[in-house]
């Protein structure tokens, strides 16, 4: 029996109303299988955030349909119960509260309270190395610490799908690498979980990227494992995974990126 795809997207399209209207996403089709970490690449304005917001039920598509962890987008609460999302780690917390209190509020929104909350908190504090700052106000945390807290919030309810829109945006290269390792550990522990991650930090993402989607000007230009895409595009086989992503990015978008960031 073929396993149910984690995410199935069929012809999703989005045009933002306005004068003039902006077509952010032309109809796209793709599928993410259970257990996959799929990296979405593309320059600013490529449609990545639009795609993530649609899959997270924050934005309504004009056309097409998608199923997230088996639930159609219109069943928005069912989708939200099964996804963990990171959009803006710096601005999505109550800064006057400490990390624990923030997680307590968001966990309650998923029905996790009391002892179940404390057990899960202890697990995540240990797994993500948050012991030194979990009782500090979020306003006083570094971007890296907030990034970990955002990951803890996204993982708290053990979601089937992680939607991570530039989660390493404000992290230094070392912290971005740590973040990616923590993410891969989670996916290793939860074999049925999948992640869709957008990033401009190709160096941090490359070691973990088995599959890549490249978006440009609202169109999905490439979808597949990096080495396969390199071969299909007739590009020379690069020496490192990072170089492969850099080549693919430049080839499909016509833009250079900074090697190794």
């Amino acid at each position: 029996m073929t396993p149910r795809p984690a995410i199935r997207v069929q012809g999703l399209a989005k045009t933002y109303p306005g004068r003039p209207p902006v077509q952010a996403l032309h109809p796209i089709h793709f599928q993410v299988d259970a257990g996959e970490l799929t990296v979405v690449l593309g320059p600013n304005g490529a449609g990545k955030t639009t795609l993530f917001k649609i899959l997270a039920t924050l934005l309504r598509p004009d056309d097409g349909e998608a199923w997230v962890a088996g639930a159609p987008l219109w069943e928005d609460r069912a989708v939200r119960a099964r996804i963990g999302v990171i959009t803006d780690p710096d601005r999505s917390f109550f800064w006057r509260l400490d990390g624990r209190e923030n997680l307590r509020f968001f966990a309650a929104g998923h029905g996790i309270r009391g002892r179940a909350f404390q057990r899960r908190l202890d697990e995540l504090v240990a797994a993500l190395g948050m012991a030194e700052f979990i009782h500090r106000r979020v306003g006083g945390l570094s971007s890296g610490q907030r990034g970990r807290l955002a990951l803890a919030r996204a993982l708290f309810h053990r979601p089937d799908i992680l939607l991570l829109d530039e989660p390493t945006r404000s992290l230094d290269p070392s912290a971005a690498g740590d973040f990616m390792r923590l993410l891969e550990d989670y996916l290793a522990d939860q074999p049925q979980a999948s992640a869709l991650l957008s990033t401009h930090r190709l160096g941090a993402a490359a070691p973990f990227t088995r599959r890549v989607l490249i978006l440009h000007q609202g169109r999905l230009l490439a979808d597949g494992p990096p080495d396969v895409l390199i071969a299909q595009a007739g590009l020379p086989q690069p020496e490192t995974r990072t170089a492969a992503l850099v080549q693919l990015y430049a080839h499909f978008t016509g833009r250079e990126t900074v090697y190794g960031r």
Binding site: T57, L58, R77, F94, H110
Partner: peptide
């Protein structure tokens, strides 16, 4: 303004309740 609306809207509870 503080940026928490979207994070709350991602919870599987009706936003009007929040």
């Amino acid at each position: 303004q503080i940026g928490v609306l979207e994070a709350q809207a991602l919870l599987p509870v009706p936003l009007p309740l929040l």
